[in-house]
Amino acid sequence: MTDTNNKTLLHSCQVPVRWGDMDAYGHVNNALYMRYLEEARVQFLADIGAAMDGNGIDPVVINVGCTFLRPVNYPATMIIKSFVGEIGRSSFMVHYELSTTDAPDILCSEGYSKVVWMDHSSGRSVPLPDQIRKNISA
């Protein structure tokens, strides 16, 4: 499935907001969004067959960011959609759309990360494995 920005939706998940995710303003603390993106990314990478043991040739994140569009308050459940964007020799962009189950059509934030395949023994990037490239190019 492709959205209007030519990004391919490859994964969606839900993450419950915990009481401890709140800050002094009574909404989810901005730093917690990085955890939500991480959880979605780990699930997404597992779905496309990425090994993540840190001993061989595995994905690493070299860039991550988030734009906050509306506050989220406890109790809530986040919906995180992961889209594959630009695909390079050894990397690809993941774009995220976050909403809540009570307002699934209204974004509360948007995020991104750049995932690079790396040989942990050399510390250098390597070409995306053929199967990974196939799985994200579907």
Rank of each mutant, 00 (worst) to 15 (best):
H11E: 03
G65K: 01
G26M: 06
Y33I: 12
P59S: 11
N63I: 04
V72W: 01
A31S: 11
N55I: 10
G20I: 01
H27D: 11
G49P: 04
E39G: 06
V64N: 11
V61N: 13
G54I: 08
V15L: 01
N73Y: 10
A46N: 14
S12Y: 00
N30A: 06
Y33C: 12
V28K: 04
V17H: 05
E39M: 14
C66T: 06
A46P: 02
L45H: 03
G56K: 09
V72A: 11
G54H: 12
L45P: 08
D21P: 01
G20T: 10
G49W: 00
G26A: 06
Q14N: 02
V72Y: 05
R18L: 13
A46Y: 01
V42N: 12
Y36D: 00
I57Y: 05
H27W: 12
V42E: 13
L69E: 12
V61Q: 13
A51T: 14
N63M: 07
N63T: 10
G54R: 02
D21H: 06
V17T: 10
E38V: 15
R41W: 05
G56E: 11
N55E: 14
V17S: 01
I57M: 13
F44A: 13
E38Y: 14
H11P: 01
R35D: 15
V61R: 11
V28P: 03
I57T: 14
V72R: 02
C66Q: 04
C66W: 02
N30P: 02
N30H: 13
C66Y: 05
E38P: 11
G54T: 08
A40E: 05
Q14V: 01
W19M: 13
Y36E: 00
V64K: 08
Y33R: 11
Q43A: 15
G56M: 05
G49I: 08
W19E: 07
N30C: 02
G54L: 06
D53F: 11
P16T: 07
P59K: 10
L37N: 09
A24W: 06
V15K: 01
L45D: 00
V64G: 09
W19T: 10
S12D: 02
C66N: 02
D21A: 09
V28C: 06
